[in-house]
């Protein structure tokens, strides 16, 4: 706002006014829990991850081997019941060097940047992949087209989650 403009009326509020309760404040939290039914396809996907394997489904019509697996092909619009294990290696389709945390706070001095990437998995159809993170790599050395492999958590620590893969590292 231009400095020439003068406040035409009203009362400016300070953070202290809010904190001290000088003005009307109401606090509430939604406090709702949601238990998502993962369904057939994602349930099996997660169960296989717990075993250290990646599973996909294949469409009998368009022959795409799809990740994450799904019970229907969204393009052919037919059910898919053919399950295929795919490799835990793949190729970086795209990546980013992320200097902010998920809540938009900046990474601290000396903290490694986050390295989200889309990895096209070997054995799945072209363009089909897993959105995950990269590790054991210098950010400046990451390239699109680089071959990578999953680094799994130890079997006893796996819970049936996409985080059962710690990250993907260059091969």
């Amino acid at each position: 706002m231009s400095e020439k403009l003068k406040v035409s009326g009203g009362t400016a509020l300070s953070e202290e006014d809010i904190r001290s309760g000088k003005i009307f404040v109401t606090e509430d939290s939604l406090n709702c829990a949601y238990a998502w039914d993962t369904g057939v396809a994602i349930n099996r996907y997660l169960a296989e991850l717990k075993q250290g394997r990646i599973i996909a489904t294949e469409c009998r019509k368009c022959k795409r081997v799809m990740l994450p697996p799904r019970l229907f092909c969204e393009l052919c619009f037919i059910p898919c019941n053919t399950w295929r294990h795919v490799k835990d290696t793949g190729t970086i389709n795209t990546f980013s060097i992320c200097h902010v945390h998920w809540d938009a706070s900046r990474i601290k001095e000396g903290e490694d940047p986050h390295l989200p990437a889309v990895i096209e998995i070997d054995g799945a159809s072209e363009g089909m992949g897993i959105m995950h993170i990269l590790g054991e790599v210098e950010p400046e050395k990451i390239k699109i087209g680089m071959k990578v492999q999953a680094v799994w958590k130890p079997e006893t620590e796996r819970t049936g989650s996409i985080n059962d893969i710690k990250y993907f590292k260059p091969l």
């Binding site: 998502w36 039914d37 993962t38 369904g39 057939v40 396809a41 994602i42 799904r70 019970l71 229907f72 619009f77």
Partner: peptide
């Protein structure tokens, strides 16, 4: 409907509709 995801449930309804 713990056996089905919302996606799978809607796919069933859509398939029947079409």
């Amino acid at each position: 409907s713990t056996d089905l995801s919302y996606r799978e449930m809607i796919f069933e309804a859509a398939t029947k509709c079409y």
